[in-house]
Simulated scan of single mutants.
Amino acid sequence: MIDEKFVAQRIEFRNSERHSLFLKVGGLPVHEVTLYLGKFRNKGRAANSIHFVCSCLTILYRELQEACVDLLERLSTGQFLTTQKLDRLVTAARYRSEDLEDESVEAKTNVIDIRRIGVRRSQNSAERQPLDAQIYASRL
Score class of each variant (00 low, 15 high):
E98G: 02
R120I: 12
A47S: 02
R14I: 06
N42K: 10
R115S: 10
Q65F: 07
E17S: 10
E63P: 00
V33E: 03
L131P: 04
R10M: 14
A46P: 01
V25E: 12
R14K: 09
A93C: 14
R14S: 06
K39G: 05
N124S: 12
N42P: 01
K39M: 07
L89N: 02
L57D: 03
E17T: 14
L60G: 00
Y136F: 04
E4L: 13
E106H: 13
S76D: 11
N110S: 15
K24N: 06
I59E: 00
Y136I: 05
K43V: 03
F6D: 00
V7L: 11
L21Q: 04
Q79C: 11
T77E: 12
N48S: 11
S125M: 11
E98A: 12
L23D: 04
R74L: 09
E17C: 08
A67C: 14
R10A: 09
S125I: 13
T58C: 00
T83H: 15
I2G: 07
V119R: 01
A8M: 03
E63K: 08
T91L: 13
A107F: 15
S76T: 12
I135W: 01
V33I: 13
T34D: 06
R18H: 09
F40V: 02
I114F: 12
I59D: 01
L21S: 01
R62E: 07
G78P: 03
R115C: 09
E98R: 04
R88I: 14
V7E: 05
S20A: 14
I59K: 03
R74C: 07
P29H: 07
K5M: 10
L131G: 06
S20R: 04
H31Y: 06
T109W: 04
Q123I: 10
L71R: 04
E12M: 02
S104V: 09
L23S: 06
R88C: 14
G26M: 03
L75K: 10
T58I: 00
